[in-house]
């Protein structure tokens, strides 16, 4: 069993105090601007709203006050955007998933966009430490007429600290529904027996930072062309495709810092194509 070879054979994540955090925020909007109509926060998850109510576009920041994620933690983030709400949600800092004893942490992000809402979910990176165990699920519930960008990106080990991830469990999955119908499902999975093979050409070769970005909105075919153009301008591996009625962009780089730089460039260029709205690089990314 992972983690049992270190003199802590009897310790299990279930014996330790684990975080059970949650947050929910509902935005609504009309011609006059975007407002927060409901919030709920349960420690260690907190929400901050650096902007003020009534702006055309709002930024919300999800904060994990515990400073990181351990095995057995459970964190739920729920974001709902209604009407003509225009909102960007990000995270305060990179999320660190620490070594687990036996149980995976469970992170669930639910993003719902209704009517003509414009929603961006642009969290900072998730750093996976050696022998971390985590199951993350990002669920998008979309309606025809909305415009949404959603991103998740993972960095395996802190490359600059020379850390190598040799074992653990990462299941990073997506479920995208459009008007109630399952449109796209996906999961990036590495488990204990996969790590030794990750360097293989068909898998990650020498990449340690990978990301997936999803776009749903109008003019998909033209925006696919725009994203292909942007992809070819980036200094990392990047490619875009359409599945069902969504664009999927995959990114891979050798280190987290490279991926962050290229993601910024991608969002800078793509948000110019999308016009004013919540799709620019969040200010938090620069703090």
């Amino acid at each position: 069993m992972p983690g049992s070879s270190t003199g802590q054979a009897s310790a299990r994540d279930i014996d330790l105090e684990r975080a059970v955090g949650a947050s929910r925020v509902v935005f609504a909007g009309d011609a006059s601007g975007t407002r927060i109509v409901d919030t709920y926060q349960k420690f260690p998850i907190a929400l901050a709203f650096p902007g003020v109510d009534g702006r055309r576009s709002l930024e919300a920041v999800v904060i994990n006050c515990s400073g990181g994620i351990a095995g057995g933690d459970r964190l739920d983030v729920d974001v709902v955007a209604r009407g003509a709400a225009s909102v960007a949600v990000t995270t305060q800092a990179a999320e660190k998933v620490y070594r687990a004893l036996d149980r995976p942490a469970q992170i669930t992000t639910r993003l719902s966009a209704h009517e003509t809402a414009r929603l961006a979910w642009l969290p900072q990176e998730t750093i996976i430490f050696d022998r971390a165990r985590v199951k993350r699920r990002t669920e998008l519930d979309l309606r025809s007429g909305v415009e949404v960008i959603a991103l998740e990106w993972l960095v395996l080990g802190r490359i600059d600290s020379g850390e190598e991830v040799r074992g653990g469990y990462v299941l990073d999955s997506w479920r995208v529904k459009l008007d109630g119908r399952l449109l796209w499902a996906d999961a990036f999975l590495i488990s204990d027996d996969t790590f030794a093979h990750l360097h293989r050409d068909a898998l990650l070769s020498n990449w340690r930072a990978v990301g997936t970005l999803i776009y749903f909105g109008p003019s998909l075919a033209r925006r696919l062309d725009v994203l292909r153009e942007i992809a070819s301008s980036l200094g990392c591996k990047c490619a875009a495709t359409i599945v069902g009625a969504i664009i999927i962009v995959r990114l891979a780089a050798i280190a987290g810092a490279d991926l962050k730089r290229e993601l910024r460039s991608l969002l800078d260029q793509f948000s110019r194509e999308l016009g004013t709205g919540p799709f620019a690089v969040p200010k938090m990314w620069s703090c």
């Binding site: 299941l171 990073d172 999955s173 499902a185 999961a187 990036f188 999975l189 590495i190 996969t194 093979h197 990750l198 050409d201 068909a202 898998l203 990650l204 070769s205 990449w207 990978v210 292909r228 591996k237 490619a239 875009a240 495709t241 995959r250 891979a252």
Partner: peptide, 19 residues
């Protein structure tokens, strides 16, 4: 619940094949 793939390059290859 355990569906998932580490075949990142296979996906990128498939996307590159489109063009």
């Amino acid at each position: 619940d355990e569906l998932g793939s580490a075949g990142f390059m296979v996906e990128l290859a498939s996307i590159a094949h489109e063009t």
